[in-house]
Simulated scan of single mutants.
Amino acid sequence: MTKAFRAGFIAILGRPNVGKSTLLNRIIGKKISITSSKPQTTRHRLLGINTTEEYQMIFVDTPGVHPGSKRYINQIMNKTAANALIDADVTLLMITSEGWKEEDRHALKLAQQEKTNLILLINKIDKLKNKNQLLPLIEYSSQLHNFKAIIPLSASDGNNVQSLVDVLPEYLPESPLLFPEGQTTDKGAQFIISETIREKLFRQLHNEIPYALAVEIQQLEMTESLIRADAIVWVEKNSQKGIIIGKKGEKLRTVGTHAREELESYFERKVFLQLWVKVRENWSDDAVMLRSIGYIE
């Protein structure tokens, strides 16, 4: 007897920098969500779609949740993460092998508010020198909640990720395809380009600049062989503008080069990028500005 096709939504929840986007990219098999060592790199809800002959798993990559956030953009990110749970068939709560932090417990309380199948992922097991440390963590975690499963894994090197993929379909409802076969994300070219630029800024600047930067695509032209994009990098202070541009524009050129190379690989066509840096004080607390650059739908 042929198995019924299953399809559903799987929310990935956790504190900032726990590895959610890395896991999503690993499962989908291509980079659709930007990553960096900086917490709160993910700011938007992003869908990653994995389709086979038997199922379609729609993963929802959410911003890292953190209690007590005062800035408006952080409040929006917390709300985005919470809303992702409402329609989820499964929630993957991710912590690391370091154990439970205050923000992990906050994420657990958030997940417990929705009636969803809750699976705990213990990420970064590759960082453990002694794998015997996992057993006490698994036992302690099982006392906090009756998880459907507790799965240790490493999103970065793929260790035990397949075990997660194998167990998920049983928690999805019988359903026809929810997205066309072959589609891997719900985001278009404009989003991919702006996020790629933002990732390269984080990687190039390291700790030199805070999170008060955003990327807005001002103009986008696409043909079968060429993409032209004009983008503005928004910061909150004049001093930040100088840091991003660098001496004689060196840093901004480097960011543009790295972004262009990755985008050409992603879209398989030539890419021309033009970047400008502009200052808008307190943009991250400005609802009008946040709406204009896509943080509020």
Rank of each mutant, 00 (worst) to 15 (best):
M1H: 13
M1Y: 05
A4N: 12
F5R: 03
R6K: 13
R6C: 05
F9G: 08
I12A: 06
R15V: 11
R15H: 08
N17R: 09
L23S: 04
L24K: 11
N25C: 05
R26T: 07
K30Q: 13
S33V: 15
S37P: 14
K38Q: 06
K38F: 06
K38E: 05
T42V: 14
L46D: 04
L47N: 12
E54V: 00
Q56W: 02
M57W: 02
V60A: 13
D61P: 08
P63H: 05
G64P: 14
H66N: 07
I73N: 04
Q75T: 06
I76E: 15
I76Y: 08
M77R: 02
K79D: 14
K79N: 11
D89G: 11
M94I: 15
T96E: 08
T96F: 10
T96Y: 07
E98T: 13
G99N: 10
G99Y: 07
K101Y: 06
D104W: 03
D104R: 03
R105W: 03
R105M: 05
A107G: 09
K109P: 01
Q113A: 06
I119P: 07
I119H: 00
L120G: 02
L121V: 03
I125W: 14
D126H: 09
D126G: 00
K127H: 10
K127Q: 12
L128Y: 09
Q133V: 00
L135A: 11
Y140N: 10
S142T: 03
Q143P: 00
L144I: 06
L144K: 11
L144G: 07
N146C: 03
A149R: 09
A149L: 12
A149M: 05
L153D: 09
D157E: 05
D157K: 14
D157L: 07
V161D: 03
L164Y: 08
D166S: 11
P173D: 10
P176T: 10
L178Y: 02
P180H: 04
E181D: 13
G182W: 10
D186A: 13
F191I: 09
F191K: 10
R203D: 04
L205R: 00
I209F: 00
L213V: 12
E216W: 12
I217E: 02
E221C: 01
S225L: 10
R228E: 15
A229S: 15
A231E: 04
A231T: 02
W234T: 05
E236D: 15
S239C: 01
K247I: 11
R253W: 02
T254Q: 12
T257H: 06
H258Y: 11
R260C: 09
R260Q: 09
E261I: 08
E261M: 14
L263M: 08
L263F: 00
E268A: 13
R269H: 02
R269F: 01
V271W: 00
V277W: 01
V279L: 11
V279M: 04
R280T: 11
R280A: 04
N282T: 13
N282M: 06
N282W: 05
D286G: 07
A287E: 14
A287L: 06
A287F: 01
V288G: 00
R291Y: 10
